[in-house]
Each structure stands twice: as structure tokens, then as C-alpha cells.
């Protein structure tokens, strides 16, 4: 796996056809793209600038599994310490129960949630199926970015899962990205703060680093805190096309244990947090 990291790094670091590409507007910042422009990736979201101050965001792939939409509204710009800054208010709405209620290809019922096969027979049974109820999760937050080429971005948001029908499903207790995605449904709410820095090292190369802290509502025995860190590069190959790559790390409580020595050859159970590292690799189109 280490070879993959080096391979990705080498790919990103190569100079080449991208040398002539113009500077790109920084992603994941309070600076919004001009009206009419947009971007989309395989894994990165579709962003479409309605006006110079309003940008819509949704993910084409994830939309059908977990319908959602986000809106960034740039509310202020200014200057501090000789560098420009911008601030956006961020609003979102998602339907996190979708994936738990529908089977493939639009959801993961049967994989992440019960199929309720016995309940579907209509038999009168004492124990009922724990099917996820319908819920929506509005979110609100803000983002402040200082600088245009060398950026420092601070942001935070809160998403709350409002149950419309049925029961709130149990926590998935699984990999952090998935756990956090459905947390407003399973844990009632999810709060986040993050800090990101991004620098244009060359016209064809941007480096970024990010640290995020998440807290979800108290449900079950596992810790509600998750920390993540991300390192990444953008490598614009043409004015309208870029490759992005990086590495993201999550530290979360997924219920893992270790068996530790307890003297005399005996052991005891000790709870530990899980660390996961994932590659992030994407192609990004802009217009």
C-alpha cells in the first residue's frame, strides 16, 4: 500500500502539460466561483454558482442514495493584515434515512439496515422490525477564509436530524465517514469545526492540509468524538480539468478492543479507538 502512496505523490508532483494552466479558484473555501461557473468530480461534489455570492452544491453519485443539497452564501469580504478575507453562510438539507430504507441501487437496506423480511409477511409477531423512520437533516454553518493564494479557512456547522415518521435507527457503529454521514439520523445531531490551509506552490500544483473535529449526539456506549486530518494536492492538467489526490485519516470509536496482559498469563479487555487511513483520488472538471 505504501507503493500506492508514493505513486500518487509522484503523479501529483510531476510537472508537465499543466504548466500552462491558469491559477484555479481554491476549493473548500469561502471564496466562491463567479456566476455561471461550476465544477464536478467523480467523488467531489457538483458546484454551480448561481450568482457571484450564491453557490449550490450536491453530489451526483451520493444524491440518489442520500438526497441532499447545500447552499453557500457569501455574506462579507474584507481585508485583514494586508490580506483579503471572505465569509460565507452555509445551509444544507439532506434525507439521511433514504439509504437505510431502500435497497440497491438507491440504498443499502439489507446491508446497513434490516430487510424486515418477517415483518413483511404480515404475521402478528411480538418483536417488530427496527426500520429507520423518515427524517430530514437541515444544517447551518459558516466559513471564513483569509487570503487568496495562501489560504487559511476556518469553518463550522451543525446538522440536526428531524424524525418525520417511525423510529430513529440505532447507531451504525462503523467506519467514520459513513457513521458521520448518517449521524444526524442515528445520533440526533452532528457538529463540526475544522481548519484548512491551502497554498499554490506552483501554477500547476496546490497543496492543502485540513484538521476536523466532529461531535455527535450521545447514543450508545461509544465515544461521540471523531477527529480527522487530510493532506492533499490538486494538479491542474488543463484549464478545465485537474487531478486531485490525498490521504485522509480518521480517529473514532468504532467499538474496537484489545486484549491486554493482566498478569499471570491472563488478559483483560481494553477498549481502544480506531484509526483509519483512506486514499482520496479524483478527477475534477471546471467550467
Amino acid at each position: 500500500m505504501r507503493g500506492l502512496w508514493w505513486g500518487l505523490w509522484a503523479l501529483a508532483a510531476l510537472p508537465g502539460v499543466a504548466g500552462a494552466a491558469p491559477a484555479r479558484p481554491p476549493r473548500e473555501s469561502a471564496w466562491l466561483a463567479p456566476a455561471g461557473s461550476g465544477s464536478v468530480g467523480v467523488f467531489n461534489p457538483l458546484r454551480w454558482a448561481l450568482t457571484d455570492a450564491l453557490t449550490l452544491e450536491a453530489h451526483p453519485l451520493a444524491f440518489f442514495a442520500a438526497p441532499h443539497v447545500g447552499l453557500d452564501w457569501q455574506v462579507a469580504q474584507g481585508e485583514l493584515g494586508g490580506r483579503a478575507w471572505a465569509a460565507t453562510a452555509r445551509f444544507g438539507l439532506s434525507v439521511p434515512s433514504w439509504a437505510l430504507r431502500f435497497g440497491l441501487p438507491f440504498g443499502a437496506r439489507g446491508y446497513l439496515s434490516p430487510t424486515c423480511a418477517v415483518a413483511d409477511t404480515g404475521e402478528a409477531r411480538a418483536d417488530t422490525c427496527a426500520e429507520a423512520g423518515w427524517a430530514i437533516a437541515p444544517s447551518v454553518g459558516g466559513r471564513w477564509t483569509w487570503g487568496r493564494e495562501g489560504l487559511l479557512t476556518v469553518d463550522g456547522d451543525l446538522a440536526v436530524g428531524l424524525l418525520l415518521t417511525g423510529e430513529r435507527p440505532a447507531s451504525l457503529d462503523t467506519y467514520a465517514p459513513l457513521q458521520l454521514a448518517v449521524a444526524p439520523l442515528t445520533h440526533t445531531w452532528r457538529a463540526h469545526v475544522g481548519v484548512r490551509t491551502e497554498h499554490a506552490v506552483r501554477p500547476w500544483l496546490r497543496l492543502a492540509a485540513e484538521v476536523d473535529l466532529y461531535r455527535v449526539g450521545d447514543v450508545g456506549p461509544l465515544s461521540p468524538w471523531t477527529v480527522s486530518g487530510w493532506l492533499g494536492v490538486d494538479w491542474p492538467l488543463t484549464p478545465g480539468f485537474a487531478l486531485t489526490s490525498g490521504v485522509i485519516w480518521f480517529n473514532s470509536d468504532q467499538g474496537a478492543i484489545d486484549l491486554v496482559a493482566d498478569g499471570g498469563g491472563f488478559v483483560r479487555v481494553e477498549r481502544v479507538r480506531s484509526n483509519d487511513v483512506y486514499p482520496t483520488l479524483d478527477a475534477l472538471w471546471t467550467w
Binding site: 467523488f43 463550522g156 465517514p177 459513513l178 484509526n275 483512506y278 482520496t280
Partner: peptide
């Protein structure tokens, strides 16, 4: 912020190439 979109993408990509 590591957006929810990227979180979902990480889940998709990461489960296939997990290095935890």
C-alpha cells in the same frame, strides 16, 4: 470542512482500499 459528500466518497473508496 470535509464535506459530507467527501465523507460518503471516502466510504465508497476507502472500503475498497482500506488501510486502517
Amino acid at each position: 470542512m470535509v464535506s459530507v459528500c467527501r465523507l460518503i466518497c471516502c466510504a465508497g473508496l476507502g472500503l475498497a482500499s482500506l488501510t486502517g
